[in-house]
Nucleic acid binder design. Structure first.
Length: 520
DNA sequence: AAAAAAC
């Protein structure tokens, strides 16, 4: 599903032929309606050296031309080279590794508990997306795959692993868990894909990834993908790859010109009404609505359903089965609106999405680019509208600075448009915009408070230290013995865990413990 | 600030 489709016959045979189902592609560039001369001149899949069963699957899905990353990466992967791909979803990245992997794996068979290849994904949804890719392209091969993700029965996954799999697609947590329980051997895994490395970094998965990589043979082929090539990512790539072929494909670094953007400043209490107005626009086919918080996803989704919209919620606290079924329902067009957290901001690819709405301004400017990048694919015009409250000027400015262009302000008929408030946002962001007249009195700044706190806090520490410094003076001993030693002692009581034998280092004043020799 | 991921 990750290639350019020409309007040739095979597309017709697809199940949902005539329906204007905009959301069917799960990865890559959606079909275009007419081939441009450039497309005709592009390389063909049949020139990439893939064998018949795989080529046949590609044909049957109606793809003829590989995307740039596919055309560049596939030959190198087939050669056995490591690949460093700088690309994000929507470029056909997934098939750029699944296709040659199928080719390499098709030669031999899997052995029990020893997966032959491993693909690491940051979220469960992405793992599922990759699995779908293997099913689609591998349908004429007899290869097996397993999805190793959290939230689902481990017994079942173990069972499949025991039978032996060719392709293991995993999120890091479950993989490590299972490995530590001894249900898995990675010594025979000779193909490794680290996908969405920048996101793995954001999510703090890198230690896990390092651990997993250390379980594999150094004699392996590694493919490493990241949407960005920050120094930190580069360092990781150097660590995991050997003499990689580096491939960079142009990414929508800012806002694709095919996305029409807009921003409305409204009162926080008017946001839901404002959103409903936007959702009722005539050209709205299907939309993702992003919220910053999981709680707000639930609230907003319920509200939309109550108002008669076809909406479903997606965030990480929902049961796994529900996450998958909701995503499927949205992809199939059964649900028109997907209300979600940033779980779906990156990577998840839903072809032909007409609208993206930011019900909340994202906290991080890059997330804005990722979110709205879900629409405006394959030359089609997408729409991305953001609702901001008057206190969110700084967040919006950060976005405009990153993308290099202002977001055009829009008015929503029937909803009052406000100005930026002069009060910077203070705390939890959930507070109602402070009224300017009250601001001075609303935030009293008691100068006495910090002084009091300071006086109180160090006092017990000081006394504890002085007791320690007294080298277990006999005065402290009685209270030590009285304590059970299991309950936390009061701050002004001595350390009880060692009885009267307090190790010397614990009796040192705090500062001296961390003194590092000055030489080098 | 929030989100994601293991039981």
């Amino acid at each position: 599903m990750s290639a350019k489709k020409t309007p040739s016959a095979p597309a017709r045979s697809a199940k949902k032929a005539a329906a204007p189902a905009p959301a069917t592609s799960t990865d890559g560039v959606a079909p275009t309606d007419t081939p441009t001369p450039e497309q005709e001149a592009q390389p063909l899949f049949s020139e990439l050296g893939l064998s018949e069963p795989i080529q046949q699957a590609i044909d049957e899905m109606g793809y003829r031309h590989p995307t740039p990353i596919q055309a560049q990466a596939i030959p190198y992967v087939l050669m056995g080279r490591d690949v460093l791909g700088v690309a994000q979803t929507g470029t056909g990245k997934t098939a750029s590794f699944t296709l040659p992997m199928l080719e390499i794996l098709s030669g031999s068979r899997a052995r029990a508990r020893m997966p032959r290849s491993l693909i690491l994904e940051p979220t469960r949804e992405l793992a599922l997306q990759v699995a779908e890719n293997f099913v689609n392209y591998g349908k004429h091969l007899k290869l097996t795959h397993a999805l190793l993700i959290g939230g689902e029965s481990m017994a079942e996954q173990k069972e499949v692993l025991n039978r032996g799999v060719d392709v293991l697609i995993a999120t890091p947590g479950r993989l490590i868990d299972l490995f530590e329980r001894g249900g898995l051997l990675l010594t025979q895994t000779k193909l490794l894909v680290i996908d969405e490395a920048d996101r793995m970094l954001d999510m703090g998965f890198i230690p896990d990834i390092e651990k997993i990589v250390s379980m594999l043979s150094p004699l392996r082929q590694t493919m490493f993908f990241s949407a960005t090539m920050a120094p930190e990512i580069r360092r990781l790539a150097d660590m995991f790859l050997r003499n990689p072929k580096e491939i960079t494909v142009s990414r929508p670094s800012s806002v694709a010109s095919t996305i029409e953007t807009g921003l409305a400043i409204v009162d926080a209490r008017e946001k839901r009404r404002a959103l409903r107005k936007l959702l009722n626009a005539a050209d709205m086919q299907n939309a993702i609505v992003f919220c910053n918080r999981k709680r707000d996803v639930d609230v907003l989704c319920k509200s939309l359903i109550k108002h008669g919209f076809s909406a479903g919620a997606l965030h990480g606290d929902l049961a796994q089965s529900l996450r998958f079924s909701t995503l499927e329902a949205f992809k199939s067009g059964e649900l028109k609106i997907l209300v979600c957290s940033d779980i779906a901001a990156r990577g998840i690819d839903i072809g032909g999405l007409s609208h993206v709405f930011n019900f909340d301004v994202p906290f991080h400017a890059e997330d804005y680019v990722h979110r709205i990048g879900r629409t405006g694919r394959a030359g089609r015009t997408g729409h991305a509208y953001t609702l901001a409250t008057p206190d969110e000027e700084a967040l919006v400015q950060a976005i405009e600075k990153l993308t290099g262009k202002p977001i055009p302000r829009i008015e929503i008929p029937g909803v009052e448009t406000l100005e930026w408030s002069e009060e910077p946002r203070t705390g939890n962001g959930r507070r109602k915009p402070a009224r300017k007249s009250n601001a001075a009195t609303a935030t009293p700044e008691p100068p006495a408070a910090p002084a009091t706190a300071e006086e109180k806090a160090p006092a017990p520490r000081k006394s504890r230290r002085s007791q320690g410094g007294a080298a277990g003076g006999s005065a402290a001993a009685p209270s030590t013995r009285r304590d059970s030693g299991l309950l936390p002692s009061a701050p002004d009581q001595p350390v009880t865990g060692f009885g009267n034998d307090i190790p010397a280092f614990m009796q040192l004043p705090r500062r001296e413990k961390s003194v590092i020799p000055a030489d080098e």
